[in-house]
Amino acid sequence: MRINEKIKIRNVAGEQIAMLHDKDMMTRVVAFNETALYLWNSLLNKDFTIEDAANLLLEKYDVDEATAKNDAAAWVKNLENNGLLI
């Protein structure tokens, strides 16, 4: 899978957000916390798997493998649900 590179994350008043426009004129705002942003920036422009995301978490944070994999899967699911993956 890949991150949708058309989506830009912007710093607005200290929040890291992506603004998404649905077909029905609705606008959604997705906010990124530090971890979600770290994964996004590390995996942008790459093909990646949940494993890759989990490994990035293991590299940076003091977590066990199961937690990292869980968090990575949750992050991917979240991106998927918001149409941020292609």
Binding site: G14, T27, V29
Partner: peptide, 11 residues
């Protein structure tokens, strides 16, 4: 909060 403020003002 900041995130709510963005969605309140931007539209």
């Amino acid at each position: 909060n900041p995130l709510e403020s963005i969605t309140a003002l931007f539209p």
